[in-house]
Design a protein around this nucleic acid. Structure first.
Length: 466
RNA sequence: GCCUCAAUAGCUCAGACGGUUAGAGCGACGGACUGUUAAUCCGCAGGUCGUAGGUUCGAUUCCUACUUGAGGCGCCA
């Protein structure tokens, strides 16, 4: 007996009349006193279920089939037939139903066949993938991840596995989680009474990485086109719909490239991702359009066909000032735009993803390339309507003297970053890159507004239960 | 970290100016009906009203603290 996925069966590539087997979890059961039950089974291979028609003559009909409730695990064997009624094209005329696991106490089973709030599902994170919403998110997240790899690989990029543990604590991207094997109740101390990290595992203070960028720049200066794709950690007490303590980030880095090359790569990659999801996850996207946000599909379609808006920081400030809109936060050249500014700019004034370039140097990181005006750096942020910043990138400062000077101005200690400076001493080349927040991108694509519902097991302040 | 809001049945919510037996929808369960598919109809069960104090003759309702959750802001991806 050949086992098929629900997706294979529904694609109509299996001949009607074939004996088939499908394994999955019951979504709904409907009984007919005409002597049969309809059992819809999902196996996660697609958004749809396959309907098994179970006749009362089966020996375990009374004892088991009539007791099936949502998420009982079953193995169904039978004949694939054209559907007599209803919306589906094919169904299984069942010969055998094997129940591998019933659901204890269906009344209190957390995932009942009704609509649940995302907040409630989040508190049952180990079971929430059995809902239409979270399983569709999981499939889209997978698609996005794989197509990012595909796009970069096809364009000659190498995937570089940068370390998750780092000693560089000065990347300027936020608070770090400390990694230690010391006994926190009784740490070794030096003669000043401070904790002596020389006795720690790495012989120095170590942290979980906040970005693979600095490391991947080294491989960029030899492999030309590289990227990181992995988890990243920020120990910030951030409580928003778009922050996680552990999240996934894609960070391409390209050599002999400037900010415009960087922006073009980012845009090309995002558009490719959007197109792929529209083509390959149409069922999932239709589900989001129906239950989450009516505009998700049309929004992505227009994104694929239309270029992003590009605007300099200076022009963005001017447009915001001239808009006549009153803002809570101060607005003048030199401020780090508040989210209300970014939102108004890309949602109201422009109405599509917006690439803002050339920010004032004082609000950006030390490694960004200084522009000739002496005031700005070659940075870019890509703002998505509804989500905000999904990409942050820049051309890197490749000139040794200017980089050292900038680090001194910004009080960035150089002692753990000699290796980074070496890149500017030995065959330095202009280069640029960006970081794409995977959860934010998937949030934008699906319309699911909280990144805690995009990652299977979200880590946020006070939450690592699963 | 700051600000705001919320917590009542398995879930989503309503409610009481403080006063006998706290309601609905969905889900679960039982039944009727039906090639059904968010089925429909009827019925039944299910609640220490988040926790701890306080005010009061009386608190689920008012007050305080705490806990948990959510949203906004900041940090950023």
């Amino acid at each position: 007996m050949t086992v098929y996925s629900v997706k294979q069966l529904l694609l109509e590539q299996i001949a009607v009349g074939s004996q088939v087997c499908v394994r999955g979890w019951v979504r709904t059961r409907r009984d007919s006193k005409a002597g049969l039950s309809f059992v819809s089974v999902s196996d996660g291979s697609c958004a749809d279920t396959i309907q098994a028609v179970v006749e009362s003559k089966l020996e375990n009909y009374e004892t088991e089939v009539l007791k099936l409730t949502k998420d009982c695990a079953v193995i169904i064997t039978g004949k694939l037939v054209a559907s007599v009624g209803g919306s589906q094209k094919v169904e299984i005329l069942t010969d055998k139903v094997e129940v591998t696991g019933f659901v204890e106490n269906p009344d209190t089973y957390p995932v009942s066949p009704k609509r649940h709030t995302v907040e409630y599902l989040r508190e049952h994170a180990h079971l929430r993938v059995r809902t239409n919403l979270i399983s569709s998110v999981a499939r889209v997240r997978n698609s996005v991840s794989m197509v990012i790899h595909e796009y970069l690989q096809q364009n000659g990029f190498y995937w570089i596995h940068t370390p998750l543990i780092t000693a560089s604590d000065a990347e300027g991207a936020g608070e770090l989680f400390k990694v230690t094997t010391l006994d926190l109740n009784n740490p070794p101390r030096n003669n000043k009474g401070h904790v002596n990290y020389k006795d720690d595992f790495f012989g120095r203070e170590a942290f979980l990485t906040v970005s693979g960028q600095l490391n991947v720049e080294t491989y960029c200066m030899g492999l030309s086109k590289v990227y990181t794709f992995g988890p990243t950690f920020r120990a910030e007490n951030s409580n928003t719909t778009r922050h996680l303590a552990e999240f996934w980030m894609v960070e391409p880095e390209i050599a002999f490239a400037d900010l415009m090359d960087d922006a073009a790569l980012a845009q090309g990659m995002l558009k490719h991702v959007f197109k792929h999801v529209l083509n390959n996850n149409s069922d999932d996207m239709n589900f989001f359009a129906q239950f989450i946000d009516k505009t998700v599909v049309t929004r992505l379609e227009s994104m694929v066909n239309d270029n992003f808006e590009m605007i300099t920081y200076t022009d963005a400030i001017k447009r915001l000032e001239n808009s006549g809109k009153k803002f809570e936060n101060p607005l003048f050249w030199g401020v780090d735009m508040a989210s209300e500014h970014e939102r108004f700019l890309c949602e109201e004034l422009i109405g599509k993803p917006t690439i803002v370039t050339n920010y004032p140097k004082d609000i950006k990181a030390f490694y960004m390339r200084q522009n000739d005006d002496g005031k700005t750096v070659a940075a870019m942020d890509i703002l998505a309507p509804g989500v905000g910043e999904i990409i942050g990138g820049s051309q890197r400062e490749e000139r040794y003297d200017l980089l050292v000077k900038r680090m001194q101005e910004m009080n960035v200690p150089t002692d753990h970053l000699d290796w980074y400076l070496d890149l500017r001493r030995y065959g330095s080349a202009p280069h640029a890159g960006f970081g794409l927040g995977l959860e934010r991108a998937v949030s934008y694509i699906t319309g699911v507004q909280n990144v805690r519902d995009i990652i299977p097991f979200p880590r946020t302040p006070n939450n690592a239960a699963y």
